[in-house]
């Protein structure tokens, strides 16, 4: 079940012709043995957005990102990243990826890690000054051992390397996991600065909505391997309401819960009720059972 809204240009920056999406999945499926990790995933992240890929642990976020980077091959469906098929070209040039755990060579010094990244990107784009500048701005010494860095330091180095590739698209798998609040702020700040400066599209996954809700203007909600929501945050919030009352309201109810004598329902529509928070929206769709969303009177 998925609710896909108008993927408009509201809230997007920049003028000019509407470009193709940065990341486009169409009916993508991926199985591991007997288990289905991704099922019929369809979504599109337009260029220039900062998109949050949200879902509980095990929802398939990492699998999805690995399919987008060519590390895994989809069993079905079409994948398009910056116009290329990662199953054919491998890592799409112009994209950068930072995996969970921010894998780096632990015994290397930071200086050597940057040199390694330069060597591995000799055939592509590599902006050594940018990467070094980002490391310096993070206050990390070039002679420090990568393995001895704090989780925040590792994240900054991994991000510096990802941005050294001068990417049009930045894919980050749980970049804020295990970081203290200050480091979280700094890492997000660095990511968003790249977006502000170069218009880099960002797709970052998180299982904590609060971490990303101020930063992201696009949401892809993944639950149980399926895409539950895909759209600009502004649009999604504007087109849902939270209605509290004694009984379940009519109309397109996504999910309702009863506590005592009150029923609180998340409803698709633009009428009565409070606009939902992003948390309301996400929790509502994750908890909605399949087929629960009424099709009657569905606004387009």
């Amino acid at each position: 079940m998925r609710w896909s809204l108008m993927r408009g240009r509201v809230g997007s920056r920049g003028v000019g012709p509407v470009p193709e999406g940065a990341v486009r999945f169409d009916g993508v499926g991926k199985r591991f043995g007997g288990r289905s990790a991704l099922r019929d995933c369809t979504f599109e992240v337009p260029r220039g957005r900062v998109a949050a890929l949200v879902g509980p642990n095990g929802a398939g976020k990492t699998t999805l990102l690995m399919v987008a980077t060519g590390l895994l091959r989809a069993d079905e469906g079409r994948v398009e990243v910056l116009g290329a098929d990662p199953a054919r070209v491998g890592m799409p040039p112009g994209a950068s990826f930072v995996a969970q755990d921010k894998p780096l060579y632990g015994t290397f010094r930071v200086r050597e890690m940057l040199r390694a990244a330069a060597a591995l990107n000799a055939r592509g784009r590599w902006d050594a000054a940018r990467a070094a500048g980002l490391v310096e701005a993070a206050g990390i010494g070039f002679d420090e051992r990568v393995g001895a860095l704090s989780p925040g330091g590792r994240a900054r180095v991994a991000l510096a390397i990802a941005l050294g590739r001068d990417p049009e698209l930045l894919l980050l798998d749980e970049p804020l996991a295990e970081l203290d609040p200050l480091a979280r702020r700094q890492v997000m700040g660095a990511v968003l600065a790249a977006s502000a400066e170069s218009g880099t599209t960002v797709v970052l996954s998180s299982h904590v909505i609060a971490d990303v809700e101020d930063a992201c203007d696009h949401l892809v909600l993944l639950g149980g391997g399926r895409v539950r929501l895909d759209g600009a945050v502004e649009d999604l919030l504007a087109q849902h309401r939270v209605i509290t009352g004694a009984t379940e309201p009519d109309g397109a109810v996504v999910h309702s819960s009863r506590s005592g004598r009150q029923v609180e329902a998340l409803v698709r529509g633009t009428g009565d009720g409070e606009p939902p928070t992003l948390d309301d929206l996400v929790m509502g769709y994750l908890q909605a059972e399949d087929g629960r969303v009424a099709a009657a009177g569905a606004p387009s």
């Binding site: 590390l71 990244a117 000799a122």
Partner: peptide, 18 residues
């Protein structure tokens, strides 16, 4: 073991060449 394969595999290098 260290998952750096995820790092190497997403840089601009042919895996077999590497």
């Amino acid at each position: 073991e260290q998952r750096t394969v995820l790092f190497v595999g997403t840089q601009a290098i042919s895996r077999v060449g590497w």
